[in-house]
Design a protein around this nucleic acid. Structure first.
Lengths: 209, 209
DNA sequence: CTTGCCGATGTAACGGTGTTACCTAACCTG
DNA sequence: CAGGTTAGGTAACACCGTTACATCGGCAAG
């Protein structure tokens, strides 16, 4: 009994330390940018010594993974706040725009989430939730029969690829003279190409190839 | 006179050293990947000592920049080999596909060319040639009046953004279960959305709003 | 109460990185 | 032949991620 409360207390302490380290990581990342980050500067900032960080996160990548997990959760939350509405196309458009907004608002986070991991295997973090959101939206659209593809998965990948491209390109060349309407226009164009116009919906509604 | 030939000889020597270093850089990059690259391993491999590299290229970034310049030239050459044909839409499609093929064939190079530069200013290398190729193609399309946008620049950016997204996404998640037809399908979809169908060409041909 | 264990933390080091201060040797120019 | 410019090497600096090792703390069992 006293055992358990003690275990709990220790766990609380653990979480506290992890939180402090993660917060310092995030702050340092946002203040000085992705490339300026280093464990040693983190150590200076968070008060803990280096081995503590390795104790809790095992690795620099492990540390980043923990942060990535949190940020992906935030992204998913942000996407879930997009109103579903009636028109699945508009909903999908909303999701795409929200994703791009997220990426452009904090490029540092975006880079953290979407840079190719080095040589290590750990395939995806839990960014799957966000992806799944888009997937169900496209399945809904598919149900209406207005999708011009054999499968909604391809359409979803096309859209998410475009969105990632939008963010990446702007991060890579922030000073380029980007079209002001690029986000809306490109997403709308792709959607126009993916989705049959409304009046054609009825004709294609049943025949799933 | 003997002066000049000597200057030439020295320059030749210079170029020889630069070539050797650049070749070793490229080989090391291709053999061991982007993340495993280091000046010291390059030094081991190319025979020259570290200061020589700094003498010739000033910087690790300078070294990469020199390589980038060359690879961009190669990319542009590859794009120029795309047959122009009669239909500007098909030509543009060909350009896009060629770009994606280039990126997927050697992800290491693609990463070298398109990763966001660190904090340094040097905005773009000479990747402009490739971009310009797409630009003129879209201007040609614009001339036909089939473009659905106010300006061809936006359309070009949309397309290049999609292509970069295609490559980036696959590099970032090579093991993901990507749709086999994603490249063609997404490019075609975007083009469908950008371009009015052929029969509508005449009606919009003159009014460049 | 003592002994022992285990987890949290710190000190100091190891090997690797980009970079540079300094020296040397070669070469053309005067 | 003297002198400056240049290519090249040796050795160091400062930083990086990481880890052996020591220390201290608190709880459990004896």
């Amino acid at each position: 009994m006293s055992t358990e409360t003690h275990e709990q207390r220790r766990e609380a302490q653990r979480d506290l330390a992890r939180r402090a380290i993660l917060d310092a990581t995030e702050a340092l990342l946002l203040d000085d940018g992705f490339d300026a980050f280093s464990i040693r500067r983190l150590v200076e900032r968070c008060g803990y010594a280096a081995p503590s960080i390795y104790h809790y996160f095992g690795d620099k990548d492990g540390l980043f993974d923990a942060l990535i997990e949190e940020r992906f959760a935030k992204l998913t939350a942000q996407l879930k706040r997009v109103p579903r509405g009636e028109d699945p196309v508009l909903y999908i458009r909303g999701l795409a725009m929200a994703f791009v907004r997220f990426g452009l608002k904090s490029p540092t986070h975006f880079r953290l989430l979407f840079t190719p991991r080095a040589g290590d295997e750990t395939p995806p973090p839990s960014g799957e939730d966000a992806r799944q959101l888009l997937e169900v939206a496209l399945n809904a659209l598919w149900e209406t029969g207005r999708l011009r593809f054999g499968d909604p998965r391809t359409a979803g990948q096309a859209l998410s690829v475009l969105c990632q491209g939008l963010v990446w390109s702007r991060i890579a060349r922030p000073d380029h003279d980007w079209s002001k309407t690029l986000n809306e226009d490109s997403i709308d164009a792709l959607l126009r190409g993916l989705v049959a116009p409304d009046d054609a919906a009825a004709s294609g509604a049943g025949e799933k190839v």
